[in-house]
Measured scan of single mutants.
Amino acid sequence: KKRTSIEVSVKGVLETHFLKCPKPAAQEISSLADSLQLEKEVVRVWFCNRRQKEKR
């Protein structure tokens, strides 16, 4: 599977969401993915990776 490069503008939206809610529910991930025209899996993994980054 190819890596998905995420646009800077999209990263901004994801970051804003992350600050409000670092662990979104599946439904939130779905609606976020739809509005950003990304796959749900890509958004889910982004949040996973972002949470791990917080720990470091």
Results as ranks from 00 to 15, higher is better:
27 Q>H: 11
45 V>H: 11
5 S>A: 13
8 V>A: 15
14 L>S: 03
43 V>I: 05
52 Q>C: 08
16 T>V: 06
38 L>P: 00
19 L>S: 10
55 K>E: 09
37 Q>M: 09
32 L>Y: 06
42 V>D: 14
19 L>E: 07
45 V>R: 11
28 E>M: 08
22 P>C: 06
24 P>K: 05
35 S>L: 11
33 A>P: 01
15 E>F: 04
18 F>V: 05
19 L>K: 06
32 L>H: 01
16 T>Q: 13
12 G>P: 08
27 Q>V: 07
26 A>P: 14
3 R>V: 10
35 S>K: 14
35 S>P: 02
12 G>D: 15
10 V>R: 03
19 L>Y: 05
34 D>A: 09
24 P>A: 06
38 L>I: 13
26 A>R: 10
17 H>I: 05
35 S>Y: 07
2 K>M: 10
11 K>Y: 11
21 C>L: 07
32 L>N: 02
39 E>D: 13
35 S>H: 15
40 K>P: 15
34 D>R: 12
43 V>Q: 05
35 S>T: 12
19 L>R: 09
11 K>R: 11
19 L>T: 12
44 R>S: 08
6 I>V: 09
25 A>T: 15
40 K>T: 14
4 T>R: 07
9 S>N: 15
18 F>G: 03
16 T>E: 15
25 A>Y: 05
54 E>R: 00
10 V>K: 11
43 V>N: 07
11 K>A: 15
18 F>P: 00
55 K>Y: 09
43 V>T: 00
36 L>S: 03
25 A>L: 09
18 F>Q: 00
52 Q>I: 11
34 D>F: 05
25 A>C: 14
7 E>A: 11
48 C>M: 12
54 E>K: 05
20 K>F: 08
8 V>F: 06
39 E>V: 05
43 V>D: 04
13 V>A: 11
29 I>L: 07
29 I>S: 03
2 K>G: 07
25 A>P: 08
7 E>R: 11
44 R>F: 00
12 G>Q: 13
23 K>N: 15
54 E>W: 01
21 C>G: 03
14 L>M: 04
47 F>T: 01
23 K>I: 07
6 I>M: 14
53 K>P: 01
35 S>R: 14
15 E>N: 01
38 L>D: 00
8 V>E: 15
1 K>W: 13
43 V>Y: 05
55 K>R: 12
30 S>C: 07
44 R>L: 04
17 H>Y: 15
16 T>P: 01
35 S>I: 07
15 E>L: 04
31 S>C: 07
32 L>P: 10
1 K>E: 12
35 S>G: 04
47 F>V: 02
26 A>M: 13
39 E>S: 11
5 S>G: 15
9 S>A: 12
28 E>S: 03
39 E>L: 06
40 K>V: 13
14 L>F: 01
6 I>L: 12
55 K>T: 07
26 A>S: 11
30 S>Q: 10
46 W>H: 04
25 A>F: 02
46 W>P: 00
37 Q>A: 07
22 P>K: 08
2 K>Q: 04
27 Q>P: 03
26 A>H: 09
55 K>N: 10
30 S>H: 03
44 R>N: 13
41 E>W: 01
37 Q>D: 13
24 P>E: 03
47 F>S: 07
38 L>R: 01
44 R>A: 10
44 R>P: 01
19 L>W: 04
41 E>A: 02
16 T>S: 14
21 C>D: 13
12 G>T: 11
53 K>E: 14
13 V>Y: 08
29 I>P: 00
17 H>D: 00
4 T>P: 10
8 V>T: 15
49 N>Q: 12
10 V>W: 09
24 P>F: 09
55 K>A: 11
36 L>V: 11
27 Q>A: 13
33 A>Q: 04
56 R>P: 00
36 L>W: 02
7 E>W: 12
47 F>P: 00
49 N>E: 13
39 E>P: 12
9 S>T: 12
42 V>M: 07
52 Q>H: 11
56 R>C: 08
15 E>P: 04
15 E>D: 00
25 A>V: 06
31 S>I: 12
44 R>C: 02
52 Q>T: 08
49 N>A: 07
35 S>E: 13
29 I>D: 03
56 R>Y: 11
44 R>I: 00
48 C>V: 13
9 S>E: 15
55 K>H: 00
34 D>G: 05
27 Q>L: 08
23 K>H: 14
27 Q>D: 14
33 A>D: 00
54 E>L: 02
32 L>D: 02
54 E>A: 02
26 A>D: 15
13 V>L: 12
5 S>N: 14
50 R>S: 02
9 S>R: 11
13 V>R: 09
18 F>S: 03
3 R>F: 09
44 R>T: 08
3 R>K: 12
44 R>G: 06
54 E>V: 04
47 F>C: 02
5 S>V: 15
32 L>I: 12
35 S>C: 07
32 L>E: 04
52 Q>R: 08
17 H>Q: 06
10 V>H: 11
31 S>Y: 08
13 V>C: 06
46 W>K: 04
5 S>C: 14
40 K>R: 11
17 H>G: 04
12 G>C: 11
51 R>S: 05
43 V>E: 02
13 V>H: 07
14 L>T: 05
23 K>F: 14
20 K>G: 03
56 R>T: 12
22 P>D: 07
12 G>L: 12
53 K>I: 06
2 K>W: 02
42 V>T: 14
13 V>E: 10
56 R>I: 12
45 V>G: 09
18 F>E: 01
49 N>F: 05
6 I>P: 10
51 R>T: 01
29 I>V: 03
51 R>Q: 09
20 K>E: 08
15 E>A: 05
37 Q>F: 04
11 K>Q: 14
3 R>T: 14
11 K>V: 11
25 A>M: 11
23 K>E: 14
34 D>S: 08
34 D>E: 10
46 W>G: 04
48 C>L: 11
